[in-house]
Design a protein around this nucleic acid. Structure first.
Length: 480
RNA sequence: GCACGGAUGGCAGAGCAGCUAUGCAAGGGAUUGCAGAUCCCUGGACCCGGGUGCAAAUCCCGGUCCGUGCUCCA
């Protein structure tokens, strides 16, 4: 079994081979905490959560790092508006991040470095770049000089220096006052009046946007590491800039072996943005959708594809996830918490083979969900068959926990699932006698072909949340 | 304008050269007073034009449309 991943730099799927056998270092760009997390952040977090889960499942020892850019222009502007310290803004939104990502069952990374805790390393790296003549000091900060490494340009985007020069057009004059060339980018920005700042050899200021990730990945993962990830909107300029910084500083290339980028989220076919007014924070979404259903929805397309967030896909996710949850919790209940090895059960073996092949093919969660749906379908008919084969059921339980739970993270814990089912059962016993007597009345109405009365009683039961099902061997009912 | 990605049945979304994707929806049947649930069955797609293959949704070339990025913006 071979894992293949799509590498943005080579623009193709490549067989995954880590630098050190059996170990994987992975760095994924996290958020700039200037506002509460939105569902695009959730998608990024979930995508890399699942990538890490699958790497671990495949036997790799994984070191997963995800950062917070806790100082930046937008954070400063929010802090000025509110008249509070910038760290208060950042910490508040980082708290929000952890709260919602925990709810979405995103496992914690091994470390969450922050820019403000990496200042010495950042300064050291900038100094190194200056010493190596790749960066220069200007009146408003320190800049990386693109022309010192033109061969590195466009590794991720395919653009050349000339293209960008043309594309930038009239904006050249508006960016960065001290730059020698408009394509140069800031490594250190000198502080203006009232801005947060740190001491440096070039004056008090703060790091530019890109250098932090080079410094933090170096600090936590070393001079070369396996996977660097993030949203596809970061490909340019952020990740291109990182290549310049890291490779020029360390003197070798490539520093990053595989570049992985997740796709963006559209709302009803349009880009999600604050200006369009179709902006969903995760908290907004969680008011309407169960967290695990949202997670399900966000992995319904492979991580590189754009996801269109619309009511149809949400409704689909609600019903599909609901089916998974109720069959799982019911099977768990009947099998009394026992787990059974599923190997040897043909259908489950086949599903296992396909789900593995799908996940090994650039983490295709869509394929995985298809297999899970198919397993759920046969489990549901097993439960409905009245055979009460708890041995077989417990094998299904184990399979679902392994793939829907451990790998995709879309199952609640067994105790939560059990209590969901028990709630149903207790609700059932609560209203049982009333329902039974109504059903008897309805039965006699039906016997005398009094259909209006029969339907009236059925409506009454519907109001109570009871679904009536007539069948050849009598009338059954269940909680909707 | 330039770069990168995408275009598959009513919708969502696999497919990476030969073999049913799948789910939802639709139609037919079984069951039913009706409805629901369940089971069985069915139809239906590969943006356009060329090219290379015994064979192309799948590879190549050209076009059209869509998305994203083009310097601090998720």
């Amino acid at each position: 079994m071979t894992l293949r991943v799509y590498d943005t730099r080579s623009r193709s799927k490549r067989v995954f081979k880590p630098l050190v056998e059996g170990q994987v270092g992975i760095y994924a760009c996290g958020i700039t905490p200037y506002s509460p997390s939105h569902i695009g952040h959730a998608r990024q977090a979930i995508a890399f959560d699942i990538i890490v889960r699958w790497l671990r499942k495949s036997g790799f020892k994984v070191n997963y790092i995800s950062n917070f850019t806790d100082i930046d222009d937008k954070i400063i502007s929010v802090s000025l508006e509110e008249g509070v310290n910038f760290l208060e803004v950042a910490n508040r939104n980082i708290d929000d991040y952890f709260t919602v990502m925990d709810a979405l069952n995103v496992l914690r990374a091994d470390a969450y470095p922050r820019v403000t805790e990496t200042i010495p390393e950042i300064i050291e790296m900038i100094q190194d770049l200056i010493d190596k003549k790749h960066a220069y000091e200007a009146e408003d900060g320190v800049y990386f000089e693109i022309d010192t490494a033109p061969e590195k340009y466009g590794q991720l985007t395919g653009q050349t220096l000339d293209m960008v020069r043309k594309g930038a057009g009239g904006r050249v004059d508006n960016t960065g006052s001290g730059k020698r060339d408009h394509r140069d980018f800031a490594l250190w920005k000198l502080a203006k009046e009232g801005e947060p700042n740190w001491e440096s050899p070039w004056g008090n200021g703060r790091p530019g946007w890109h250098i932090e990730c080079s410094a933090m990945s170096l600090k936590h993962l070393g001079e070369k590491f396996d996977i660097h990830g993030g949203g596809s909107d970061l490909v340019f300029p952020h990740h291109e800039a990182e290549i310049f910084q890291s490779e020029c500083c360390l003197g070798h290339d490539p520093v990053v072996q595989y570049w992985l980028h997740n796709g963006m989220i559209n709302i009803d076919g349009e880009k999600m943005s604050k200006s369009v007014g179709n902006f969903w924070t995760v908290s907004d979404a969680l008011e309407k959708i169960e967290p695990l259903v949202l997670r399900y929805a966000l992995i319904n397309a492979p991580y590189r594809q754009p996801v269109d967030f619309n009511s149809v896909m949400i409704d689909d996710s609600i019903s599909h996830h609901g089916r998974l949850l109720s069959s799982y919790s019911e099977a768990l209940y009947y099998s009394e918490g026992i787990r059974n090895d599923y190997s040897g059960i043909e259908h489950l073996d086949e599903a296992t083979r396909r789900i593995r092949a799908g996940m090994d093919d650039d983490f295709n969660t869509r394929i995985a969900l298809v297999e899970i749906q198919s397993v759920v379908k046969s489990l549901t008919s097993l439960i409905d068959s009245d055979e009460n084969d708890t041995h077989l059921m417990s094998a299904y339980v184990q399979w679902l926990e392994e793939f829907a739970g451990e790998v995709l993270g879309i199952l609640p814990t067994p105790s939560v699932a059990i209590s969901l089912h028990e709630e149903k059962i207790s609700r059932r016993s609560e209203i049982s006698s009333k329902v039974e007597s109504l059903l008897e009345m309805r039965e006699s109405a039906r016997a005398s072909k009094n259909w209006p009365e029969s339907d009236r009683i059925r409506d009454e039961l519907t109001e109570m949340g009871v679904v009536v099902e007539d069948s050849p061997d009598g009338t059954k009912w269940r909680i909707s």
